[in-house]
Design a protein around this nucleic acid. Sequence first.
RNA 1: GGCCCUAUCGUCUAAUGGUUAGGACAUCACCCUCUCACGGUGGUAAUCGGGGUUCAAAUCCCCGUAGGGUCACCA
Length: 438
Amino acid sequence: MSEQNHKVITRFAPSPTGVLHVGGVRTALFSWLYARKHNGEFVLRIEDTDTERSTALFEQDIIDGLAWLGLTYDHFYRQSERAPEHRAHLERMLAEGSVYEAEDNKDGTGKVIRFKNTNETITFADVVRGDITFDTTELGDFVIARDIDHPLYHFAVVADDYDMGITHVIRGEDGISNTPRQILIGRAMGAPRPVYAHIPLILAPDKSKLSKRHGAVSATAYRDAGYLPEALINFLALLGWNPGDEREIFTRDELIRDFSLDRIQKSGAVFSTEKLNWVNKEHSKRLPPEIAAEEVVRHFPDRDSTIVKAITPLVLERISVWSDIDTLCEAGEFTYFFTEPQIEAEKLSWKDASREDTMRHIDKLIEMLQEADYTHPDTIKASVWDYAEAEGRGAVLWPFRYALSGKEKSVDPFTIAHIIGRDQTLARLHVARSACDI
RNA sequence: GGCCCUAUCGUCUAAUGGUUAGGACAUCACCCUCUCACGGUGGUAAUCGGGGUUCAAAUCCCCGUAGGGUCACCA
């Protein structure tokens, strides 16, 4: 059964009983990467046979999350819509005697369908962990369907994987103990045994299973927080997999090219938002400038977009996620590019420089900046640099920057002057000059 | 508890019997610098414990310990 002869078909089979969380995303990602790498197919199968707990809202969240991340699928199924196929398998197996009807132990009415366990030791070769052996005796004649029209999880999974030609079952580590009984069912059904790869779980910082109480866990929440989909994918790919060299930043295509099942880690990995933020920042830096500017503009809804575009590089080096822009703006971080700042006279002087000296420097700055070339921060710098060097950079440049920004921490004065232009620069210096005079 | 899986810096990981145990995030220091951010350089920091096997063990074996998963007429 060499892999080369068969087209690779993988699947992601979530139940819509909750949002698509990062653990699910990574499971989907690994399956998707493997299928894409081998020019195979990727199936999304919504396992909604539990009508009590499944909701359309969760199903939509899963679909939206995968769409945002660009994890495209070639086939879409809802397990609930495959009742006829399930029934056919069940009828055939009933006839063959590999499964049988039995008393309903729960309420004594009706009958359930049980698997006739052959009580063997089953060994399967997990791609990630090597041989895993179970004694299936303890499973007993487990129930595989409530009745002929209501198959249970294990049966439905095996029947669907068979019918959909799934060659590689890539799923979370929590699927390991399900595998023996699925192998048993598959064999009785006449299905070829797929390759199994059980990937490690994603953990919270305290090493427990990741859940809502650990903050944002759903893919769409990361979307809404302003993460780049390729960054989340890059980060998640590196959680439990590595390329074998020291690269950390990958495009989607690079991941497809370099991904392999045999470099998947065995142990669980803690999800680190700090590292995710770093990865996101690295991806932001690599964004085409126009695209980045467009996104930044969106976060300055009522501002002059020409100015916003001009300050985009400054914004980018101060954020890791888009929503950081809003946080910085609320703190008044970039307002001085758009409106004249409020300044306080006592903050105008550098360290213990005297008010007289500061006044003198401002006068000189006004004089020099009258005729300066504003086409580039460097040309502005050139016109005042010699003076600043001679008088003490701090003594000259601090008041310069403070006059323009009204902030103790800000972008450098040359860049601000370049962006706000000659008139604004001179106007603000005059305001500072008179504030000094009072 | 039974069964199964796992164990390298705080975190993600590399090293498929021989390395000063490497890289990244975070952190610290220094440099750049008027401030902030960016950037640069350097530092601190790990093989869970105990036994084997071997000339040689993070690596192979066994026993502990710890963590996780799973034990439904849920998925």
